[in-house]
Amino acid sequence: MSKVHVTTTVNGDEVEFLAEPRQSLLEVLRDELKLTGTKEGCNDGNCGACSVVFDGTLVASCCVLGVEADGKKVETVEGMATPDALHPLQQAFLEETGMQCGICTPGFLISSKELLKSKPNPSEEEIRFWLANNLCRCTGYDKIVKAVQKAAAVMEEA
């Protein structure tokens, strides 16, 4: 089974790679493109550590094939900050201690970014509902929720 040539856009940059159809988007990002910010926690859709934005939609990249990325746009945690500044969510996760070990953090950031895109001013319940596909074992979620609330407030003002 031959490898497939894929052209895709990752964080605004056009990239090409060869992938076996069985490689997940997560694998391709990490192993072929060396974008290791996106993490693997379960490889079956349940932990959200591998969250990326795929074709404008929040997905678990372990549940997408790499070859499906052909002609699509992918956004990962590596694309959130600009050279000048962190994304308000990244800043808020730092200020509110929205992480401990940090393995879940890229997934939470991507997921929260999509939340604020669709609901700029979410309630605590809406945040908790949206983030339920992202598991964090360290924080108990409290400070993550507060970080998202803080970022929402900062982004509203901006």
């Binding site: 959200g48 939609t57 997408v64 949206w130 596909n133």
Partner: peptide
């Protein structure tokens, strides 16, 4: 059906 990530697919 799953969480947000699942429902997007």
């Amino acid at each position: 059906i799953g969480g947000m990530q699942t429902q997007g697919r």
